[in-house]
């Protein structure tokens, strides 16, 4: 057996890819799934919490709603502070073992993983969404109200489309962070990339070589995600110019025909 063993670094890398390539890729798949689903659900949570946190209370709001609002605001604020203020690795332990001890729920490690990533991302996104909403020019909200929109309609048609566009980079950022940070879920034995790597490395005690491969896989995932998001951001920006409608200058048969080669440079 010893004769078959590689002797160089690259020899080991090739050996590990052959032996554990599919296990590592499977781990990478789990990592991606956790990161993407967690980010998506986290965004939805963040959106809901952020929107509720910016509901205005005026003199005209009735007392019952005011009290309800106070309670909900307190709960949401506590949620955001607690999940931003504790490490995800600890949250994973508390959720996974706590659900068993306190609620007698036998949650799978995977489910606990999804839960922790989503709820954690939600706490960060809530702040991002809140900031995004607050940063939209107050004049536009007033203009929306002045043409008869209520708060909900104003949010839906004017504020959120702009806020969401502005926080797109932050959503992308969260996805990249999640691709990397789901590695902490190995403490509750979620078989994501880090966990798969640790298992593979343990067999031949080739930690450096295995984690070198792991490193490359993580980087490919985050880099691809970052490029993809950049592309979507560009697509969302819209065109830089506009066409006049019914303008003689834009008319192909007009004085400046723009469908011939004349103006082309």
């Amino acid at each position: 057996m010893a004769a078959d063993m590689p002797t160089t670094f690259f020899g080991w890398v090739v050996f590990i890819i052959n032996q554990y390539g599919s296990a590592l890729l499977q781990g990478a798949g789990v990592t991606l799934m956790l990161a993407i689903v967690g980010t998506l659900i986290g965004c939805i949570i963040g959106l809901l919490v952020g929107i509720v946190q910016t509901v205005p209370v005026t003199e005209r709001t009735n007392t019952g709603l005011k009290i309800l609002n106070k309670i909900v605001q307190f709960i949401f604020a506590a949620y955001v502070e607690i999940f931003r203020g504790t490490p995800m690795i600890v949250q994973a332990m508390v959720v996974y073992y706590g659900s068993m001890a306190v609620f007698d729920i036998d949650m799978s490690a995977m489910l606990a993983g999804f839960l922790v990533v989503s709820v954690n991302t939600g706490a960060y996104m809530a702040e991002t969404v809140r900031g995004g909403i607050i940063s939209i020019d107050k004049g536009q909200t007033e203009a929306a109200m002045a043409i008869g929109m209520n708060h909900f309609q104003t949010m839906y048609t004017v504020v959120l489309p702009q806020a969401l566009k502005n926080i797109m980079p932050q959503i992308g950022n969260n996805l990249i962070i999640n691709i990397k940070d789901t590695s902490v879920l190995n403490v509750i034995s979620v078989t994501e990339l880090y966990f798969a790597s640790k298992s593979a490395a343990g067999v031949y005690y080739r930690y450096f070589e295995v984690f070198f491969v792991t490193c490359v896989i993580y980087f490919i995932m985050t880099f691809a995600a970052s490029r993809l998001l950049r592309y979507f951001e560009k697509r969302m920006a819209g065109s830089a110019d506009y066409q006049l409608v019914g303008d003689p200058m834009a008319d192909p048969t007009g004085i400046f025909p723009n469908n011939t080669k004349m103006g082309g440079k």
């Binding site: 004049g139 536009q140 007033e142 203009a143 002045a146 929109m149 004017v158």
Partner: peptide, 28 residues
């Protein structure tokens, strides 16, 4: 009772046409 502002306050996520359609569609 409509209002026109000093700083225009057009909706920057909409085109000119969408700005003017917003209220007929959403409110009316």
């Amino acid at each position: 009772v409509g209002m026109v502002f000093q700083s225009f306050n057009l909706f920057s996520n909409m085109t000119v046409l969408q700005n003017c359609m917003a209220s007929p569609v959403t409110v009316l």
